[in-house]
């Protein structure tokens, strides 16, 4: 059984490692999917919010001068209660209008980077865990005169990712328990021959030891098995040891 437990333990450890890697990769993937889904939606919201500002830009009006801009943005924010802020910004990133009563002077650096790398008119990303989506506002010549940025808080995404990680971890533990049971059964069945061989080996050694202590107490010696098995070799080696020991004893006697 000792051999079985060792193999079973090693295989269970490998299984645990696979499950841990799976849970880790799946959670990372979920974070990516979640962030992309939210980002894409915010991108569409930003595009929708940019409409009235683009109409003004096409008429040649400056973005900062759009009347009731805050009202327009607040109406968009009301379509999703989770939106933390919507900013309208100038080409250099300076915020012109915002739903935030105390907006920062400029849009976050992550949004500036995503905007500079975007090939299309809209873009999305993540700034220190906060998902965002943005859209460019263009004038009649197609030149960007600014943009709209929609921000989401980090907390709901982080909570969802943690919940997913925990759910997968619990499932993995249940699967690990089942898989180790299955592994144990399969190893027992598959390595039956080896385990039987090891048990026979143990039995042969145990038989030899038992006969040795019994004969030391005067029991008649057991009939030695024939062949070249371990028991026969143990008996032969023990006999040779005892004989040699007695010879040494005899050789030592005259000197006493």
């Amino acid at each position: 059984m000792a051999l079985f437990w060792r193999i079973w333990l090693a295989i269970s450890a490998i299984n645990l490692l696979i499950l841990a890697i799976f849970v880790g990769l799946a959670t990372l993937q979920f974070a990516t999917i979640q962030s992309r889904l939210v980002g894409e939606r915010l991108e569409v919201i930003a595009g929708h919010a940019a409409g009235p500002f683009e109409a003004a830009a096409r008429l040649g009006l400056p973005l900062g001068g759009v009347r009731n801009a805050s009202g327009l943005l607040l109406r968009i924010q009301q379509t999703d209660a989770d939106i933390s802020a919507i900013h309208v910004f100038a080409p250099d990133g300076a915020i012109l209008h915002s739903t935030d009563p105390a907006p920062p002077p400029r849009i976050p650096p992550g949004a500036i980077a995503a905007r500079s790398m975007a090939a299309a008119g809209s873009w999305a990303g993540n700034d220190r865990g906060e998902p965002f989506g943005g859209a460019e506002i263009r004038d009649t010549s197609g030149r960007s005169v600014g943009g709209v940025l929609v921000l989401y808080p980090a907390a709901p995404s982080v909570t969802r990712i943690r919940a997913m990680g925990s759910e997968l971890m619990v499932s993995a533990l249940v699967i690990l328990v089942l898989a180790t049971g299955l592994g144990g059964a399969l190893i027992r069945a598959g390595l039956r021959r080896e385990f039987r061989g090891f048990e026979a080996l143990e039995a042969a050694i145990h038989g030899f030891e038992r006969d040795a202590w019994r004969s030391a107490a005067g029991a008649p010696p057991a009939t030695p098995p024939g062949g070249e098995g371990i028991r026969a070799r143990l008996d032969a080696a023990e006999t040779r040891y005892r004989e040699t020991g007695r010879t040494l004893e005899r050789s030592a006697e005259p000197t006493r």
């Binding site: 021959r193 080896e194 039987r196 061989g197 090891f198 048990e199 026979a200 080996l201 143990e202 042969a204 098995g229 371990i230 028991r231």
Partner: peptide, 8 residues
Amino acid sequence: MSDGTSIG
């Protein structure tokens, strides 16, 4: 493999 001497 009567006494397990060929486990390897």
